[in-house]
Structure formats: C-alpha cells, structure tokens
C-alpha cells in the first residue's frame, strides 16, 4: 500500500498501518504485563499480503506464527523513541519521549492476493484451534485497501469462519480502507448502506461483534448498535486505529 488515506491525511497508508499494528502489539504486551513477567494470554500471528504472503514480523521473530505474547514482548526488532503528549497533571499536556517497539516494518508492493492470505490464515487457525480447543476463539483482524486480485475470497473466508473452539467460532472482522473521499460505513447491522457488490461480499465474510466487543466500541465513543457486524468500509485512519483497538479489547482481564 503506498497511497495516502485520501486528502484528509498525509500519512502514507503503509507507514500508518505498520504504526497501528506495532501499537496494537505494544498494547497487548502491556496489557499482559503483571510484574517483570508476562502472562501469555494471547498468541499472535501477523500476516502481510502483497507481492508475497506470510508472516510480517521482523527481527528475531521473522517468519514466525503463533507467537506467545511474552516472546513478542522480549523480541521487538528494535526499540525506537517517539514523542507523545501526556497530561501534565495540571490540566495541560507535556511532550514526553516514549519507547516505541517495532515488530513490523511498512511494506507496499504487489497486488491484493486475498485468497492466498485467507487460505494461510485458515491453515494457521486450524493448527491453533486443534491445540487450544477450549480457548476464547481466535480473532482475525483483516485490513485491506482494495479488491482481491486472486479471485473471490468468499469461500476462503467461510473456511476461516468454520474454525473455532468450544467457546465459539473464529471471529473475522474486516476493515477496508479507501483513498477516495467515499462514504464510510462502520459496523453496520445489515447491507442496506453498502455501495457495491464488493462491499457486500466483504460484509458477508464478517462476524457479528460479540457483546463484549460492542461494549468496548461504545466505551471508546464509537456508535455501534446491537447486532452490528465487525466490518468497516471506506475506513479512514481514525477508523483503522479504532478497528484494531475494538478487535483486541474483548478479553476483560480485570
């Protein structure tokens, strides 16, 4: 991906997406940190697709899938520093330097071989659910900027949705991002507002948001009705960040 998200953002999509994925992994790590140790509540795979299809993790985790979150924590490819505005305790904001671990680097080349990507995801899910038959079902957060270039992915998506654990079927949430100034549709309950057949086919590949995810969305200020699907069409940068946050906040660990 190498286009910006329409005119409202100058950020290149690829940079932005890598940032969002790195921030998501960072948040998962922090959430599982108890003391010096980490509870491996999650295992993570990050699949990229373009000129090739496979794990996007860099550094020591390169090529790995099903990585326990404790290993993710201990093996970022590098620790960068960024500046961040934080509350100063007196109602204002101060700039603070924070460490920003990098696991995934931006890439933007090739087509959109969605069928291959879904097929790999399905294989990984079948492996994982066979060894974790009673866990919370896996969640797949799929982000795409265009139509599949290797065929209709619907059947592959069905196979993903056919995997699961005794606690339920795998959850597949789809977020389509657009470079055009097109009307965004976020977490719809049905297809009525979707602009074309492509949008409808992605919608049909999406799981309903379970109540805990929906409440996470509502607590973030995103209007999501009961019965909504985990689907965003023509998403902007804000909706991508929200999509990842909603999709990784289900497990109330308190």
């Amino acid at each position: 991906m190498s286009e910006s998200f329409g005119t409202e953002s100058a950020a290149r999509k690829a940079d932005f997406v890598a940032d969002v994925v790195n921030r998501t992994l960072h948040d998962l790590v922090i959430r599982c940190t108890r003391t010096e140790e980490i509870r491996s509540y999650y295992e993570v795979s990050v699949i990229g697709y373009g000129s090739s299809v496979g794990s996007m993790l860099s550094g020591g985790l390169s090529g790995r899938n099903h990585v326990p979150i404790s290993e993710v924590a201990d093996s970022p490819a590098r620790l960068e520093t960024r500046s961040k505005k934080v509350p100063d305790g007196a109602g204002g904001l101060v700039e603070q330097t924070v460490r920003f671990p990098i696991w995934v680097d931006p890439t933007s080349n090739g087509g959109t071989p969605m069928c291959q990507a879904f097929s790999l995801a399905q294989r990984l899910l079948a492996e994982w659910t066979a060894t974790h038959p009673h866990s919370f079902p896996p969640t797949v957060l799929h982000l795409t900027d265009g139509e599949s270039t290797d065929g209709d992915p619907t059947e592959h998506a069905r196979q993903i949705l056919g995997t699961g654990t005794s606690d339920g079927a795998t959850l597949l949430f789809n977020c389509h991002v657009s470079s055009k100034h097109a009307m965004k549709v976020a977490y719809p309950n049905d297809e009525s507002r979707l602009p074309d057949e492509y949008a409808r086919s992605l919608f049909r590949c999406s799981s309903r948001l379970p109540e805990s995810f929906r409440q996470a969305a509502v607590s973030m200020g995103v209007a999501v009705e009961e019965g909504a699907y985990g689907f965003v069409f023509n998403g902007d940068p804000v909706s991508v960040a929200q999509f990842f946050e909603i999709g990784t906040r289900p497990a109330n660990l308190r």
Partner: peptide, 14 residues
C-alpha cells in the same frame, strides 16, 4: 519494590 531494579521495557512502562 520495583524502582530499584532493572526491568524490561514493558515492565518499566507498566
């Protein structure tokens, strides 16, 4: 308890 020992990046942040 925690301020006097070296911690990995995530534990220090938390």
């Amino acid at each position: 308890r925690w301020s006097e020992r070296p911690l990995p990046w995530y534990a220090e942040e938390k």
